[in-house]
């Protein structure tokens, strides 16, 4: 009783026969082998499993792979290009935006979606934006700094917060 799905993940097309009850996060980790997306709480609270679905940040533990059929998914593995870290990854690295690292893939994907929409976010916009992603180590201060750093790099110039947002 498999259903055939065709999902574009980080630019390449993956086809597979899956049971309808297979969660997207299990599809990514176990069928495709992309283990960067983490399973944290498994109850739609923590955001460790965040991926982009057609450009929107969503919790992949709370959708079935069949729902993503024909759609586009980006995981944390899709951030770096040609061996070059993405500015968001660099930001987390340089500003110490992680300690244990478990929440980091979801946090970075959420940051990516936020910066697409709001290229120059205020601290409040960043904190509001990541309010669906839980971190138990950092106290968030360095995560916010990392995202701010990435925003500046991605715009090319550091600018006072609030502009163009």
């Amino acid at each position: 009783m498999g259903n055939r799905v065709k999902i574009t993940i980080n630019g390449s097309v993956h086809e597979a026969e899956v049971e309808p009850r297979l969660l997207l996060v299990h599809f990514l980790r176990e069928v495709v082998g992309l283990t960067g997306t983490h399973i944290g709480c498994d109850t739609t609270n923590c955001g460790a499993c965040t991926v982009l679905l057609d450009g929107r940040a969503v919790k992949s533990c709370t959708m079935f792979a069949v729902q993503a059929d024909g759609r586009t998914v980006m995981t944390v593995e899709g951030l770096a290009q040609n061996g070059q870290l993405h500015p968001i990854q660099e930001g987390f690295h340089q500003k110490h935006g992680l300690q244990c690292g478990f929440c980091t893939p979801g946090m970075m994907i959420t940051a990516f979606a936020l910066l697409q929409r709001v290229p120059n976010p205020t601290e409040e916009q960043i904190r509001w934006g990541i309010s669906g992603n839980l971190c138990r180590c950092t106290g968030y201060v360095n995560i916010v700094a990392a995202i701010k750093d990435a925003a500046d790099k991605m715009r090319g110039t550091p600018a006072p917060a609030g502009e163009r947002s």
Binding site: V58, K59, G132, N133
Partner: peptide
């Protein structure tokens, strides 16, 4: 309502 990720779905 919930959090931004939930509001996206």
């Amino acid at each position: 309502i919930a959090d931004p990720l939930v509001r996206n779905m």
